[in-house]
């Protein structure tokens, strides 16, 4: 199982990375090298093994539904690369979907 440059480009697109051409080549080489090591895992039979997502044996960690002060807006927007003192500004979003429940 070898990844092609096209496949790596497709994955990079999913990750929102615009890779340079030479970068794609180099990355494809590295990835194939690493995937070989990953293949090691296929030696293990794990058909009856539960996956571990989290190591802590804890459940139901909650906070009470209480309102706490938000950050001052000036402070939030100060970090923004482009703002208009009320909101963050991005290039006009062409797709009119709002992402919600997409």
């Amino acid at each position: 199982m070898k990844l092609t440059v096209e496949e790596v480009t497709a994955v990079a697109n999913l990750a929102c990375l615009a890779l340079e051409e030479d970068e794609k080549e180099r990355l494809t080489g590295h990835l194939n090298q690493i995937l070989e090591h990953f293949a090691e895992l296929q030696k293990l039979d794990t058909s009856d093994v539960e996956p571990t997502d989290r190591v802590l044996p804890m459940v139901n960690v909650y906070r009470a539904d209480e309102v706490k002060p938000s950050l001052p807006r000036e402070e939030i927007l100060a970090a923004g690369p482009l703002t208009n003192y009320e909101a963050f500004i991005v290039p006009r979003v062409v797709d009119s979907s709002d992402g919600k429940s997409a």
């Binding site: 929102c16 990375l17 615009a18 970090a79 690369p81 963050f88 991005v90 290039p91 979003v93």
Partner: peptide
């Protein structure tokens, strides 16, 4: 992604700006 903090490379649309 260049919206709220840190570096941003400007581009014509948001997706290209992210990339």
């Amino acid at each position: 992604d260049g919206v709220r903090y840190g570096m941003r490379v400007e581009a014509g649309d948001h997706a290209e700006m992210f990339r």
